[in-house]
Amino acid sequence: MNSIKKIPRKVWWGLEAKSYTEIAQELPTADEKLRRWVAIYAVYHLDFDNRFPGERYYNFLESAKGSKYVIVDFTLPIHILEKRDSIGASDTTITNCKKLDTEEEIDLFLQNNNIDPELFTPPWTCEYPLD
């Protein structure tokens, strides 16, 4: 009997304990000019009401306000990564974005989209480009 793959507990607990706002992994892409990442953000950690004046979140996070998590799957042209010091969500092409409220919903989404949950890491360990 196959056991269901899960996000590594240490990584998941880091997300839940606010050690980081998102966890991510880089995924393969058929286009050699692109890199692809998938990330899970803990939206409920974000304070949408008491921000510094002018502070904004990415549009996909603003759209997920009221949900507990959002998964975003996007590509980014390699030439942008090589030429810019700063990358923003407007530089990406979002191929999938889903609001979710439980770890079980996340597990099902990952399974349905053939994403290996065991490969999620803190963002800095997979060269995640969005700050």
Rank of each mutant, 00 (worst) to 15 (best):
L100P: 08
N50P: 02
S86I: 13
R84M: 04
A64H: 07
L61M: 15
L61E: 15
I106C: 02
D91L: 01
S63Y: 02
L81G: 00
E105I: 06
K98A: 11
D49E: 15
N96P: 06
K99T: 13
N96Y: 07
Y57M: 06
I71E: 03
G54M: 10
A89F: 02
V72Q: 07
A64L: 08
A89D: 06
T102S: 15
P77S: 03
N96S: 15
K83Q: 13
Y58H: 09
E104Q: 15
N96A: 14
N59R: 15
E105S: 07
C97Y: 03
Y57T: 04
R51V: 09
T75D: 08
D49G: 10
R56G: 07
Y69I: 13
P77V: 02
I106T: 02
F60G: 04
I78P: 01
D85S: 15
R84S: 08
A64D: 05
L76D: 09
Y69L: 11
S86C: 06
V70M: 02
A64Y: 05
N50M: 05
L100F: 03
G66I: 10
K68A: 09
Y57R: 11
I94V: 14
G88K: 12
N50V: 09
D91E: 05
V70A: 00
E55N: 09
N96Q: 14
G54N: 13
P53L: 01
D101T: 03
E103F: 15
Y69M: 12
L76F: 09
E104Y: 10
A89V: 08
V70E: 01
T93W: 00
T75L: 06
R84Y: 10
K83C: 00
E82A: 12
R51Q: 12
H79S: 11
L81W: 00
T102P: 12
N50E: 07
L76I: 14
K83S: 15
V72W: 05
I94M: 11
E103W: 14
Y57K: 11
K99E: 07
Y69K: 12
L61P: 06
V70G: 03
P77C: 01
D73W: 09
K99Q: 14
C97F: 03
